[in-house]
Design a protein around this nucleic acid. Structure first.
Length: 483
RNA sequence: UCCUCUUUAGCUCAGUUGGUUAGAGCAUCUGACUGUUAAUCAGAGGGUCGUUGGUUCGAGCCCAACAAGAGGAGCCA
């Protein structure tokens, strides 16, 4: 092999031009052909598209070609020429071939055929070699970048809030304990309880369930900040939209009220969807076609009213519907399924939390577009949300997306010290442990707002995947921490 | 955690009111074919029917427990 540099398949295909001496490396997707010619579809992950290698048995030995099986890794050098076939513009006439890594076709778990997502989940270490998952993870990267770019361009600062937290007052769900104590021989104190004084941090510590409270501290100093980090919830949730370890984006903005907050969230969502449309066309085209194919055999009623690319364009081009919780309750109370008692939980009066079936009705049936619900009853929301003048509601907002449900949850934060401490008392939040948080209200407080965006839920929407375990490389769910 | 469903070849699935030797497509292997596009055509190999126990002359099929997976609910992002 000569010492020329590897060319990425994405670059070869986007240039689409013949070139004398070219070196490519990648993994074999399929091989086919006859005695006189062998065709190899090679993929290196730089694009969903494959490069066709053409091997003449006069140039490449039969023994070598025999080792070219699905999954094997190759290095191939030759001449890039205009393709004689119709499926591609250029192809590589192979002059020399090296097998970097063989893959026994009898044992390699990925076959050149369609696999179920459930099966691929069991071999999550190999699934990025498939079209679907390589597309999903290229898009996931693009969305990570787009989010950082969006906030950076607006003058936000990215804050790395702690992953290990000593605060158990965040109130956003069950936490994972962090400890270096010997679990088989826990030290006890005089009262017979576990003596955390002997633990690594001299106290009980957990993995974070939210960076919001820490982000608020920086919002009240740097004005506009956001977090983008891992989040851990030890809830026993077994659904297509919950993970025990997931990634969350939490902007926090000083001098912003609930309307500013909604404007920011809507602008961000439209920005990143547009970014995907502008920059991930090949992958989205593939996922779109995949979805159309999946629904081909379904009945008319079970098919989505819009397919992936149309849904994405729709979100970019249309404003989200904004209404209050109270208005939503009125719509639901007078809705057909409520009158005909089709809801499992009937809407009778003001104050109840909305169930998924209600959110789905509003988003998928009544408005048929993303919906922002605001001003929820204070009793069903967190202590830190700003109390409205009516005394019953808080300045909260949830953004609901079709097929996904809540993708964003946020609020204007309670900046008034007396109101905040009163609410903490009512909801049994230990104020004595949160002096650092209350200090922001004691010293130079100001109205501010923020929200949390579930990154994987965003990826579900953008890729059209339907199970959250298929949009994170190695999903952690109850009873499962493989790989 | 609750409810429902599923578990048969490497993968995706059929398998009748319980009956003798458990099938198909794809994949794999072998062969054919002068440029293929998930190539095509022909042939071959491949099974402790999730596990354990029970009912029965007889269980892939009926019953029970357990396990794994999926979907829905709750919690939320």
């Amino acid at each position: 092999m000569s010492t020329i540099r590897r060319t990425k398949i994405a670059d070869i295909l986007s240039a689409g031009q013949a070139s004398a001496d070219t070196l490519v490396k990648g993994w074999v997707r399929t091989k086919r052909g006859n005695k006189n010619v062998t065709f190899i579809a090679l993929n290196d992950g730089s694009t969903i598209k494959n490069l066709q290698l053409v091997a003449d048995p006069n140039d490449i030995s039969e023994d070598l070609l025999k080792k070219v099986a699905t999954g094997a890794c190759l290095s191939a050098q030759g001449e890039l020429v205009e393709s004689q076939g119709s499926g591609q513009s250029v192809e590589l006439l192979v002059k020399s071939l090296e097998i970097l890594g063989e893959a026994d076709p009898e044992k390699y778990p990925l076959q050149p055929k369609k696999h179920s997502l459930e099966y691929l989940r069991e071999i999550a270490h190999l699934r990025p070699r498939t079209n679907t998952f390589s597309a999903v993870f290229r898009i996931r990267h693009a969305m990570t970048y787009a989010i950082h770019k969006f906030f950076n361009d607006k003058g936000f600062y990215n804050i790395h809030t702690p992953i290990i937290t000593g605060s158990d007052a965040e109130g956003a769900g069950e936490m994972f304990r962090v400890t270096t104590l010997d679990m088989d021989n826990l030290p006890k104190n005089e009262e017979g309880a576990i003596d955390y004084k002997q633990d690594f941090f001299d106290k009980e510590t957990n993995l974070t369930v939210s960076g919001q409270l820490e982000a608020e501290l920086f919002a009240l100093s740097l004005s506009q900040v956001y977090t983008f980090g891992p989040t851990f919830r030890a809830e026993n949730s077994n659904t297509t939209r919950h993970l025990a370890e997931f990634w969350m984006i939490e902007p926090e903005v000083a001098f912003a009220d609930l309307n500013d907050n909604m404007d920011l969230a809507e602008e961000m969502l439209q920005y990143v969807v547009k970014y995907a449309l502008d920059n991930c066309a090949d992958d989205l085209d593939f996922l779109h076609a995949r979805e159309v194919e999946e629904n081909k055999n379904k009945k008319e009623i079970d098919r989505p009213s819009m397919y992936l690319l149309d849904r994405l364009k729709f979100v970019v081009e249309n404003q989200f519907e904004r209404l209050t919780y109270t208005e939503a309750i009125d719509i639901l109370r007078n809705s057909k399924p409520n009158k005909k008692k089709k809801f499992q939980y009937l809407i009778e009066g003001w104050g109840a939390d909305l169930q998924s079936e209600h959110e789905r009705y509003l988003v998928e049936k009544h408005f048929n577009k993303p919906v922002i619900l605001t001003d929820y009853p204070k009793d069903i929301k967190a202590f830190y949300m700003r109390q409205n003048d009516d005394g019953n509601t808080v300045a909260a907002m949830d953004i609901l997306f079709p097929g996904i449900g809540e993708i964003v949850g946020g609020s204007q934060r309670e900046e008034r010290l007396d109101k905040l401490t009163q609410r903490m008392e009512e909801m049994d939040v230990p104020a004595e442990e949160m002096g650092w948080f209350l200090d922001t209200r004691k010293f130079g407080t100001t109205p501010h707002s923020g929200y949390g965006l579930g990154f994987e839920r965003l990826i579900l929407f953008i890729t059209g995947m339907t199970n959250i375990r298929d949009v994170i490389p190695f999903p952690r769910t109850p009873g499962n921490a493989e790989f």
